[in-house]
Design a binder for these strands. Structure first.
Lengths: 147, 147
DNA sequence: GTACAAGCTCAAGTCAACTTGAAGTCAAGG
DNA sequence: CCTTGACTTCAAGTTGACTTGAGCTTGTAC
């Protein structure tokens, strides 16, 4: 097990498909050195970077957002623990918001669907913040049944 | 305000774009009667069905899953409260699971990224169930950094 | 030296959930 | 009658996150 890892090794260790790793590289989320052959060689810290990406995805960030976060890392030196933990600051808030929404939805499960009203101003399927946050394609909010 | 609603009215009342409503109809998630003109006319119960769809989406179900749920409703009569609430049974479990994962991720935020280990067997970014549940494209789990 | 596994690039395909556009019809007000 | 807005269908486009395939090169094991 050498100092530098091949894409296959990184893929097995991270659980991320090699094609996905190449894709991430194309999007500048990760980078690799090249062997004389043109094959990718990853230094061990790349694994942490990839872990960070997977982690952030599970939380709900898009690759673009993740890229913006990663761009905040110092380009000149290997990131320290402090660097990493600074990045994930603020995520807790995001997680909490999503958890709150899920709690609301869970309440609505019995209160709204159970009772049959299913309208947001009376029940609590979504709050004003959710509505304000509606953007992009697809249904993002439920306006309610009153004029 | 008549007995039957036009697609525009339903769109305004539900917050779901008319194009999305047509799309749902194509996917047999909702249905409509037609006026002589060929224009869609929705009976009021359609609003509840649409609310159900939006609700289920927020919880994280795909349209296909939602379709399967809706197919369980009695085709011969208007669904009752009991019908609706039977559908949403089991969702609470699903919500709880997702909340638990988010809690784990939140813990990992400080424990794993903070400490720098970022590997799942030692930290708690994902549990065995998550790994087993890995399917479909994209990274779904993090195998860890040990052989 | 010869398989054959593993890598490479680049273009194109996939999937979900819609949206957009074109080309035409219908309904209501003046 | 005419305009304007709401509606229709059908085909094609969009976005995100990848995957797949073709065609070619490299590395390793016997």
């Amino acid at each position: 097990m050498s100092e530098l890892l091949t894409i296959g090794e990184v893929s097995r260790r991270s659980g991320v498909a090699a094609s996905a790793l190449r894709f991430y590289e194309e999007r500048d989320l990760i980078s690799s050195e090249r062997a004389g052959s043109g094959h990718r060689r990853y230094p061990r810290p790349a694994l942490r970077r990839i872990a960070f990406i997977v982690f952030a995805q599970r939380i709900g960030l898009s690759l673009e957002e993740i890229g913006e976060e990663l761009a905040k890392l110092p380009p000149d030196r290997a990131p320290t623990r402090r660097d990493w933990s600074r990045l994930s600051k603020g995520w807790a808030t995001r997680i909490d918001e999503r958890i709150e929404e899920l709690e609301r939805l869970k309440a609505g499960l019995t209160e709204c669907i159970g009772c049959g009203c299913l309208s947001l101003d009376r029940c609590r399927l979504a709050n004003p913040d959710d509505r304000a946050g509606a953007r992009g394609p697809g249904p993002r909010y439920w306006i309610g049944d009153v004029p």
